[in-house]
Nucleic acid binder design. Structure first.
Lengths: 343, 343
DNA sequence: TAATTATATGCAATCGTTTGCGTAATCCGA
DNA sequence: TCGGATTACGCAAACGATTGCATATAATTA
């Protein structure tokens, strides 16, 4: 059993009767140290399994080299899309020799600010972040940029900052999905989206609108609702289904909402997809659990994560110019299952 | 816009014409510095938003003080139970002033070893870990312990190490669930579990067996199967349902498997729960998505995470004796929904 | 007024590495 | 045998903070 204290270069130096500088050079294979000494030192180090103290290394290099820690801020953790993204970030970061410091904001602005400070103190080399819902001031992000810490946004983008970002192709994703509904015979397609002042909400709505236009259908405002969770969906849907001119399809902004619609529509006695078609957005766990299984737009969270990490590392390593905001769009994919008719 | 280089005590000292030592003492509110100087220095620091370099602080204190970084190793990330646990760890750690370095092993032994080394190098103060499936050697864990890095296991426990751990009460959870099935009229209850050489598998099986005994039912070996995923469940279930003496209930080791059973049983034309009752284990997202909703044992991942973090921090801070292995069991809770009859 | 004590500050070592520079020792050719 | 190049190493100053100890000044006491 080793002693608790880690072995240092000083120990090696003392033991082998050389200076610390020599040990340092020998371990980094400097040719200015004679072959025999170098090997002796390396062997000794190996046998006593010495390894360098990163803290000291970092301190020495703090002027030039950034650390290899990437900060990741998520609004919540128990969430299919976010954990996919984290997975993607981890994959990309670890293969490129970086590690992750992960924190969740709980959708709280105050906590988000705290986290940013803590990460700055802990010398992360950059931060990948999705904003908390109630964040409306951006000084904490600006401070980070001023301190030279690159920022990459995903999912929820900071509108006030021209920062690097990666988002999914909400517009095309929705357009394809709605086109699919139309092409399988649906005429009155309801749209359950988020508030239009979120970029994501607007893009999806535009995709919906344009798909209708392209197919020569009119947009009926009464079919467009703000609704992005199951409870609301279960409340809003029944009255719509009881109207004279009921929808024959629903496009929902996420799988959860789609599931809500599905469950309530079935309860009302409609057949899915024969009476009503339903399409979601995410393609998470839920999509294959409901009955029938959900047709949905795959959001490819892990790809989003990978791209975000790739951008950040590029920024850190200088492959990407620090002043340029890299913006990437991850393509979505329509996964057709049982809640829509087949073409 | 600030310069990129962070301000240091030296800068403050130069600017105010005092020594670095004085700045250090003033900022830590030492009474040995005169009130005026102290305030002047503090004000200057505040105005130029100086903050200490943790790297340097850590180096200075490395002998006595551990870092405040907790390493977390997960076999995978996109998984309800694991992300709940991560959520719990984050919550507990962040409120107690620690941050998380998260890595995933991808169920690979080699990667797990790498991660342990990297975390040791990065001076985490301790590690919370669930073993990869193919880990059968434990030297990397032993090295960590030898180096004085406390370890806390969750979910998948290292059998060869007498380390601290937190697990859910698989035995009672299963026992209660099976009792519920019996008390709602089921007589022939199938058990879909994992391999018996995993502790978790054995405990759940024992709970099943003892629930049967306590209610005077016999254990029928033909109803006990090894099956812990949806695909297998969909393959194994139909033949069972076609036998003369078909089961009238299923207990599955996780929700995913239960969903597989549910979907196939419905397809075969049985009514759930009237013909067949089904109970799962996890209570993840899936449980409320299927139709009918799944009766299941809630695993309380976030509680597991909190307990794990609590133990680790106790170990690090010395509240818990370093040589003692703290073992905690998180109670489960039966959530009765639509796949079983009501009592 | 001289001696004593408090008060406020600086010096310098330390944490573990890295690295520019200086310098013995060795080697080479003439 | 001597001057110059080469080789192989050590010294010491960083990196940014902390802290035991010494000390200069000021305040107190006899």
């Amino acid at each position: 059993m080793d002693d608790k204290r880690q072995m240092t270069m000083k120990d090696i130096a003392r033991e082998l009767g050389v200076s610390v500088a020599t040990v340092s050079r020998a371990l980094s294979d400097s040719p200015s140290i004679s072959r025999e000494r170098r090997q002796a030192i390396q062997q000794y180090a190996r046998e006593h399994n010495y390894f360098p103290n990163v803290i000291a290394e970092q301190l020495r290099h703090s002027r030039r080299n950034p650390s290899r820690a990437i900060g990741v801020i998520m609004p919540e953790m128990v969430h299919y899309y976010f954990s996919s993204i984290l997975d993607g970030i981890e994959t990309e970061a670890s293969t490129r020799g970086y590690h992750l410091i992960v924190a969740k904001s709980n959708e709280s602005y105050a906590r988000e600010v705290q986290i940013c400070e803590a990460m700055l103190k802990n010398k992360v080399c950059g931060i990948i972040v999705s904003q908390a819902k109630d964040t409306e001031q951006y000084d904490h992000f600006k401070h980070l940029e001023a301190a030279g810490v690159p920022l990459v946004f995903y999912d929820r983008i900071c509108p006030a900052l021209n920062a690097s970002r990666v988002v999914v192709d909400d517009y095309m994703g929705t357009m394809n999905a709605v086109s699919h509904l139309i092409e399988t015979g649906c005429k009155r397609i309801a749209f359950f989206g988020t508030s239009m002042n979120m970029i994501i909400g607007k893009n999806r709505f535009n995709g919906y609108r344009d798909a209708l236009y392209e197919h020569g259908l009119e947009l009926d405002e009464s079919l467009v609702r703000i609704c992005d969770n199951r409870a609301d969906a279960e409340r809003i849907t029944p009255p719509m289904m009881r109207t004279e001119n009921r929808p024959d399809a629903f496009f929902a902004v996420n799988d959860e909402t789609a599931i809500g619609i599905l469950s309530v529509v079935k309860r009302l006695g409609f057949a899915v997809p024969d009476d009503v078609s339903i399409c979601g957005f995410t393609n998470g766990f839920r999509a294959t659990v409901c009955d029938p299984m959900l047709t949905t737009v795959e959001q490819r969270g892990s790809q989003v994560g990978k791209e975000a990490a790739d951008i950040l590392i590029g920024l850190v390593e200088g492959t990407l110019p620090a002043d340029h905001a890299e913006k990437r769009i991850v393509k979505t994919r329509l996964v057709i299952r049982g809640t829509t008719r087949h073409p």
